[in-house]
Each structure stands twice: as C-alpha cells, then as structure tokens.
Nucleic acid binder design. Structure first.
Ligand SMILES: NC(=O)c1ccc[n+]([C@@H]2O[C@H](COP(=O)([O-])OP(=O)(O)OC[C@H]3O[C@@H](n4cnc5c(N)ncnc54)[C@H](O)[C@@H]3O)[C@@H](O)[C@H]2O)c1
Ligand SMILES: NC(=O)c1ccc[n+]([C@@H]2O[C@H](COP(=O)([O-])OP(=O)(O)OC[C@H]3O[C@@H](n4cnc5c(N)ncnc54)[C@H](O)[C@@H]3O)[C@@H](O)[C@H]2O)c1
Lengths: 217, 217
DNA sequence: AGCCGCTTGTGAACGTGGGCACAAAGTCGC
DNA sequence: GCGACTTTGTGCCCACGTTCACAAGCGGCT
C-alpha cells in the first residue's frame, strides 16, 4: 500500500502514540521491534498496529519485525514533525504558563515561536526563554516564523475572538483548551481539550459501575 | 427508548458538551430549545443530537423542543454529576498547579478532595484552599471522601507507580496527563490527555494541506 | 540448499456510529 | 375543534474502524 492512500483519523492518533513509545524504546538500545511487542507497549491490538503501519507502506521484515529508527523516521515524516513545526500560544494565564514551560513540546517536534496575551501586565514577562508579546504582534510573528498551529488558553469568552485573529494571521490549525465551540473556515482544523468533559466521561462509567452493583445486590 | 439501554461512547462525550453549552444558554434566560438550535451551538448535526438525547428517554415536545432545565437535569444525572463527585490530583508541578486552581472543575460537577505530591518541599503548600499532602495519606483520603476519580500529573516515569497506588486505594477511574501507557485492572477506566499527540494530529493535517498545494502548483 | 518457525501484510466479517428522511405527535391560530 | 406548521424520535443505509485468521515472505539452523 503506497503513500498516497488516505489515512484514517483513528490511525493518525495512534501513530502519534507509537512514535512516543518508540522514543522510550530506542533509548533502550533496541534496534528492531515486532508488531506484537510494540502493540503491547502502546496498549493496542497487534493486528491493528500492523494495519496502521501498512498505510505508510510496507517496510517491516517478516520473521523479524520493524527497524526502530526507520519506523520513527517514517512516522515522523507522515505526521509532519520530522523537523520542528512552529506554534504560537495565546493566553498566558495559569494553564498557559504550564504549557509554555513544558519541555514535551520541543522533544516531540514542536517549537514555541511566540507567547501572546491581552493583559498589559503580562507583556514582557519571560517564560522558558520567551517574552510574552502583545496581541498586536501576533500576525507578524505568524508570518515571519511560518507558524501553522495556534494554541488557545484564554478564558472561554475570548476564545472565538482569539481564534478569529489567529485565522486572520494565517494559522490553519488550532488546539483549543477553552470550553467553547469555535467556528472556523473549512480549511482550518480545530481540536479541543476539555478537562471537564474527560472527567464527565469517567463519571458516566462510574455511574454505570455503581448501577451494576445495585443489580447484583 | 428507556433508561437501561447501552449508551455509545461517542454519545457520552457529546452529552458532556451539550451540558456545557446548556450551561451558557440557561444563563441567557432561554427556557426551551430546539434540537436544531442546540446542535448549532454545540457544533453537531441536529439528527445526531436528537439520537443522542433519545438514549436518555424521550422528553422533548414535538413542535417546541426541549425544556432547558429538564435537559440539564437529565444529562447531569446520566453523567453522574448531578451532585459533586470527588477527585484527587497527584503531582502538583507546573500542570498540577494550574489544574488545582482551575475553577471549571467545581462548576462542572467535581470537587477536588485532595492534592498529593512525592516531593517533601511541596507538602503543606496551599493552593486554592487545599494543602498538598504526602502520598502516604492518599489511601485514607480516597476512602474517607469516597473518591472515585484520580488525576495523574506527575512525570511519565512515575505515572504507572502512582496509578497503582491510586487503584490500590480504591480509585476506579483515572485521567492521565503523563505521556505513558498505563496498565490497569479490567474494572478501572483510564482516559489520557496527551498534548503532543493532539499537536501531531494537527501537524499531520497541515502536512496534507501542504501536499495538496504541491499538486495544484 | 532446504526446511522450519516466526512475523508481516491483508482479505473478509463484524460491529459501531453518522446522516438522511419521514411518520408521528404536539402547538398555535382561527 | 380543526388544519397548518413545527419539531421530535427513529428506521434504514452507508462508511469507517476493529478484529480474526491466514497466506506469503524472510531469516536462521542444520
Ligand atoms: N487552568 C486549568 O487547569 C485549565 C484546565 C482546563 C481548561 N482550562 C481552560 O483554559 C483557559 C485558560 O485557563 P487559565 O486557568 O489559564 O485562565 P487564566 O485566567 O489564568 O488565563 C487566561 C489568560 O488569557 C488572557 N486573555 C484574556 N483574554 C484574552 C484575549 N482576548 N486575548 C489574549 N489573551 C487573553 C488573560 O490575560 C490571561 O492571562 C480557560 O478557558 C480555562 O477554562 C484551564
Ligand atoms: N506542563 C505542561 O503543560 C504539560 C502539558 C502536557 C503534559 N504534561 C505532562 O504532565 C506531567 C506533569 O508535568 P509538569 O510540567 O507539571 O511536571 P513537573 O515536574 O512540574 O511536576 C511533576 C510533579 O510530580 C511530582 N512527582 C514526581 N514523582 C512523583 C511520585 N512518584 N508521586 C507523586 N508525585 C510525584 C513532582 O514532585 C512534581 O511536583 C508530565 O508527565 C508532563 O509530561 C505537562
């Protein structure tokens, strides 16, 4: 199966996980790995893993497995992180501070090209070697540094406005931490992370478990 | 369709979103809402929304829509957040601080029953009215306060160990922010939030868009 | 060189979820 | 009270994703 084939959304998400797991493994000095072993480490079914990898071409060796370095290379390229990709972060409050200082960004293929906030008092503050800038400078940084991804960590009320400014500046992918539904043009991708939603899903299953016990009693 | 029916995972996730959107709307004084309007606000298809709600029973009024308060009540109950549910947070570093201070927790049905860290220097520190406690006290708090959900915000290396302690203490749902695959018993649910994975998924689509342009040129 | 055992890559079956389209059921105006 | 209009609830079908199972392929051992 060659490169040009459409890769399912679910597969893309797992590829990112495989890449992370391979990162830990190759530190361990392992040079090849079987689908079974990698699948275990990633917490998925081995057939699924093989099918996922088959979308990238077939470069495993039957009877042996996959060469770790080739695999990493292949997945990185597919995900577009074989060289660092630039992101901007808007909203440097509680959450924004944590994100700005987070090393996992860089080690997994991203570079923070700028921090932005609307609050004058925050501007100029230095976090992890970067200065917080005014919103007015957003467009220039996005253009200058070829930023394609924007992260929103402002309050929900400001999210749509910030989103619009990011899109106007040329950003075509947005990761939104604010609990708000964003409206964007067709060519822009949005992913959202809502902590409360995650907890509520867990809560739902707790509810179920409790109900199950009731029946047993 | 009555209560006992199995609710699809995808529906549960959306119910949580509907609940959030209803929160903003009922502040607006609206007493009823049509599936069309709510679907728009939540960014989904109206047929899908109606099907989702139908799993909770049929309590809409044809020709009118749904009574906002009834709807909120119904979804809250289904998700098990009609009264506050207790959670503990382990790992009060950069991310943990932000989470501990986050108001969206409480307003969406959760109460932080305890903050825990392995670092002696962090113990005793007060955040949002709660003191950081030693890991040794974890089990007691979980039991005492009927905590069912644990949030892990420690480094990846410590995640499995922390997870094991949470499970041993009686926690049956875990939200994991550490980039690590957790192994848990069957009766325990795990959800993970991995920022880098989210960014890599966006990056993949950027890659695609760029490839599309190449073809055009 | 040939055979054996291991692992990949994938066809086919199955299950879940999404969306259309419409009948059923209610409201509102007259 | 009746008819026109609105909106729900859902049957049906299609697309996507998961899992099983196995033939094909490769390395290593004799
Ligand atoms: N803190 C958490 O742990 C957490 C967890 C999940 C989700 N969230 C969400 O993330 C978002 C940020 O949370 P927080 O706790 O960091 O809030 P915060 O209030 O501490 O920070 C928000 C920051 O955004 C800035 N801001 C406000 N309006 C802006 C605008 N129009 N343009 C640019 N910057 C603007 C503010 O100046 C502030 O610095 C919120 O939507 C929150 O719901 C937070
Ligand atoms: N900071 C971010 O924005 C961010 C974003 C995404 C994911 N993450 C992940 O979240 C986790 C925490 O990130 P962070 O930046 O807050 O790290 P951090 O180092 O600032 O905080 C980690 C905390 O965990 C505590 N800890 C370590 N081992 C422990 C143990 N065995 N038991 C209990 N507590 C222990 C430490 O004392 C520290 O307080 C990491 O896994 C990181 O990869 C962080």
């Amino acid at each position: 199966m060659s490169e040009g084939r459409a890769i399912p959304e679910a597969t893309v998400a797992r590829l990112a996980v495989y890449l992370r797991v391979l990162g830990s493994l190759s530190d361990g000095g392992l040079s090849t790995i079987s689908s079974e072993a990698l699948a275990n480490a990633a917490g998925v079914n081995s057939a699924k893993l093989r099918k996922d990898l088959s979308y990238l071409g077939s470069f495993g060796t039957r009877g042996v497995g996959y060469v770790v370095e080739v695999l990493r290379e292949r997945i990185s390229t597919c995900l577009g992180v074989s060289e660092h990709r630039s992101v901007v972060l808007v909203g440097v409050g509680n959450l924004g501070h944590a994100l700005a200082g987070y090393g996992g960004f860089r080690s997994r293929g991203f570079r923070i090209a700028g921090l932005f906030d609307a609050d004058r008092r925050r501007i100029g503050e230095e976090i992890a070697g970067l200065c917080v800038q005014a919103m007015a400078e957003l467009a220039e940084v996005v253009t200058q540094e070829s930023v394609s991804i924007g992260v929103i960590a402002t309050p929900a009320e400001a999210a749509q406005e910030v989103c619009d400014r990011l899109v106007a500046a040329g950003v075509t992918s947005i990761l939104n931490f604010a609990p708000a539904v964003l409206v964007v043009p067709d060519n822009v991708d949005v992913r959202k992370v809502d902590l409360a939603v995650e907890l509520q899903i867990l809560s739902f299953h707790e509810q179920r478990k409790a109900a199950g016990l009731q029946v047993v009693l």
